Simulated assay, not measured.
Amino acid sequence: MTGKAADQAAGILAVDIGGTGLKCAVIDDHGTMISERERVDTPHPCHPQALLDAYAGMAAKHPAFDRISIGFPGVVRDGKVLTAPNLGTELWEGFALAEAMSARLKAPARLINDAEMQGYGIVSGKGLEMVLTLGTGAGTALFRNGELMPHMELAHHPVHDNLTYDEYLGVAAYEKHGKHHWNKHVARVIELLYVLLHYDHLYLGGGNAKHVEIELPANVSLADNDAGLTGGAALWRTR
């Protein structure tokens, strides 16, 4: 059991790794926050040891936890990182992050894509629901009746003029084109994703969702960004 001493039962340390910020909080088995969300800037370069050092320092300030849920911005499988486009795939490819985080923080850890972890904190469990995260890049997750579907790395698929979703919707596009033009990009992607999937509901999450100013269709809504942490409870439910 790691973290500050506490009278209450140990919770889950939820870890949300981003290209610009590292976040964490301790949550209970229902996804309710036990501690306040903490955020620090992502170190650059962000090699695995730097990330582990950052989270070791953050975790020590939070209540006790006996499990860890990790949301990572890239393709992950079996506890290992396959791609890390916004952190440096050359630094991360093949790294056993779940095992390393578990060893460093002395608690079992489970690893999932960050958009998928946010989705677990958002979806209603009815129909085909999609999550699109707008941050350093763009992330996606798809759920059918509450069940997570196989991961699609749409972020690196061409969407317009050979630009990928990352390049079309990410923070670099926002800074280059400005809020008004970037919102047009968001509107176009909402339409394209509906043609592709005919989702029942689309949730827009991530740090830059706060910049969305277009009128959204009835089946599209903005999501609470804390869901990137609270969704971590689902990783420890009986499967």
Rank of each mutant, 00 (worst) to 15 (best):
A84D: 04
L82F: 12
P85F: 07
D114N: 10
E147N: 11
N145R: 02
P150M: 02
P150Y: 01
E99Q: 14
I70N: 07
A100S: 14
A96P: 15
A100P: 05
K126N: 15
L142E: 08
T136F: 07
A98I: 08
R110V: 11
A100W: 04
V76Q: 00
G137E: 00
F95N: 14
G146W: 02
D114R: 08
A109G: 10
L128Y: 13
G119R: 04
N113S: 03
F72D: 02
R110D: 10
A138I: 12
L134S: 01
Y120V: 01
T133C: 05
A100Y: 08
D114T: 07
L91G: 05
G137R: 01
G127N: 09
F95D: 13
P73A: 03
R144K: 13
G139C: 05
N86W: 01
T136V: 08
L154C: 00
I112N: 06
L82S: 12
L128I: 10
A141E: 03
M130D: 10
P73F: 03
G79L: 03
I70A: 05
K106V: 14
A109L: 09
L148I: 12
A115F: 03
L82P: 02
E116A: 15
V81N: 02
P85V: 03
F72R: 01
W92Q: 04
P85D: 03
R77L: 11
A109M: 11
E116S: 15
Q118V: 12
L82E: 15
R110G: 06
L142K: 14
G88Q: 08
G71C: 09
L134A: 01
E93Y: 12
A138E: 05
K106Q: 15
A103F: 07
M149T: 02
L87Q: 09
A98L: 02
G127L: 11
V131A: 07
R144L: 14
P150S: 01
P73I: 02
A155E: 04
M117Q: 15
L87N: 13
K80G: 07
E93C: 12
L111W: 01
R77D: 13
L128K: 14
E99P: 04
R110K: 15
K106A: 15
